Amino acid sequence: MGRGSAGAGWPAASPPPACDGLQWRLSDVAELPLVREELRRRIDAQEPADLRDRLLLVLDEMASNALRHGGGRVEASVRRTGNAFLVAVSDGDARTPPTPAVDRDPSEGGLGLHLIAELSTAHGWYVEGDAKTVWAVLPRT
């Protein structure tokens, strides 16, 4: 794999500290086009277009996974951390870790976690209370 590796599962780890950014509360995948549009508008125009595209893809994959499989409330954020962006998505299924698809035909889907691992320099997940948070760091350079 590339920079990151999804392996058999994602590592249980806390994300790096992050500051100012965007945050959304989501209840349906139908809200994702509006979230993507807001992210496109709000990411600094000085950021490279390929970085914006990667952020959009990672956020969309994480949020759609949480909405489809996470149960309950979903919160998503994109924040700055040093020379990178931290994408984090929380859902109400604290008992189920993010598990990348293994030995599955790509046409059946389920490869989003592998893709996120490839695009990120670090990724992981943690549980706080009754919420699970899945996160990934995408470098700005």
Rank of each mutant, 00 (worst) to 15 (best):
43 I>C: 05
115 L>E: 11
89 V>E: 06
129 G>C: 11
80 R>A: 05
80 R>D: 06
40 R>G: 08
60 D>T: 15
17 P>Y: 05
59 L>H: 09
8 A>C: 02
81 T>S: 15
19 C>V: 13
63 A>H: 03
13 A>L: 12
9 G>Q: 14
60 D>M: 12
69 H>V: 11
15 P>W: 06
42 R>E: 07
9 G>H: 14
44 D>Q: 06
76 A>Y: 09
87 V>K: 04
65 N>A: 12
99 T>I: 15
22 L>Y: 04
89 V>S: 05
43 I>G: 00
54 R>T: 02
81 T>G: 07
50 D>H: 14
32 L>F: 10
31 E>C: 01
15 P>N: 07
45 A>C: 09
23 Q>R: 11
118 E>Q: 14
11 P>S: 14
110 G>D: 12
16 P>R: 14
41 R>Y: 11
64 S>W: 05
13 A>K: 08
16 P>E: 12
33 P>Q: 08
43 I>A: 09
98 P>R: 06
64 S>K: 09
32 L>E: 03
127 V>Y: 05
141 T>V: 10
38 E>W: 01
2 G>W: 00
129 G>V: 13
137 V>K: 04
119 L>E: 04
27 S>Y: 02
75 E>W: 00
86 L>H: 06
62 M>L: 15
54 R>Y: 00
32 L>Q: 03
32 L>W: 04
71 G>A: 11
72 G>I: 10
93 D>Y: 14
48 P>Y: 00
82 G>Y: 04
74 V>T: 10
85 F>M: 06
44 D>T: 05
13 A>F: 11
4 G>M: 08
33 P>D: 09
18 A>V: 07
84 A>S: 11
29 V>D: 11
20 D>F: 07
135 W>C: 09
24 W>C: 08
135 W>K: 07
53 D>H: 11
17 P>E: 06
127 V>Q: 07
94 A>C: 08
2 G>C: 03
90 S>P: 07
128 E>G: 12
91 D>T: 10
60 D>Y: 12
137 V>N: 01
87 V>R: 06
29 V>L: 01
48 P>H: 12
21 G>K: 01
79 R>T: 15
72 G>C: 05
74 V>S: 03
5 S>M: 06
15 P>Y: 12
87 V>D: 04
28 D>M: 07
107 S>F: 11
53 D>L: 13
70 G>M: 08
36 R>K: 05
122 A>N: 08
98 P>Q: 13
92 G>C: 14
54 R>I: 04
75 E>G: 02
48 P>A: 13
129 G>K: 08
108 E>S: 07
105 D>W: 10
77 S>T: 10
109 G>Y: 07
109 G>I: 06
28 D>I: 13
31 E>S: 02
140 R>F: 01
93 D>T: 13
134 V>G: 05
5 S>W: 00
